[in-house]
């Protein structure tokens, strides 16, 4: 197949990871924070695919499958928590943590 410079693919994954991290840090809406986490997980998955490609092994792809399973489980719990937060307190703001000190 094609020849892809692997270091560029890795740098792409690092960039995506950082963008996700920035999103996680600056957004206060829990919804966007969950999406940023998905971006970061995807970036890590990309790094695994690149590593698998370097060694010509299926292991990187197998790991991606497990990341996919985790992402599904995590998102379902996260969204269930958002629903609960919104239905009871009508907010999506995680920083409104008035109940907990500090």
């Amino acid at each position: 197949m094609t020849a892809i410079p692997l270091n560029h693919a890795l740098i792409l994954s690092a960039m995506l990871f950082t963008v996700g991290l920035v999103g996680l840090l600056v957004r206060r809406n829990i919804f966007f924070m969950l999406m940023s986490i998905e971006i970061m997980l995807n970036a890590a998955g990309l790094a695994f695919i690149v590593a698998g490609t370097r060694w010509g092994q299926p292991d990187g792809q197998v790991m991606f499958l497990f990341i996919l399973a985790l992402a599904a489980a995590e998102v379902s719990i996260g969204l269930a928590l958002i629903l609960r937060l919104y239905q009871q307190f009508k907010t999506m703001d995680v920083d409104a943590a008035h109940e907990l000190q500090g």
Partner: peptide
Amino acid sequence: GFPEPLDVTEV
């Protein structure tokens, strides 16, 4: 890391 473009083999 890997400055040389790698010939990708499909898995």
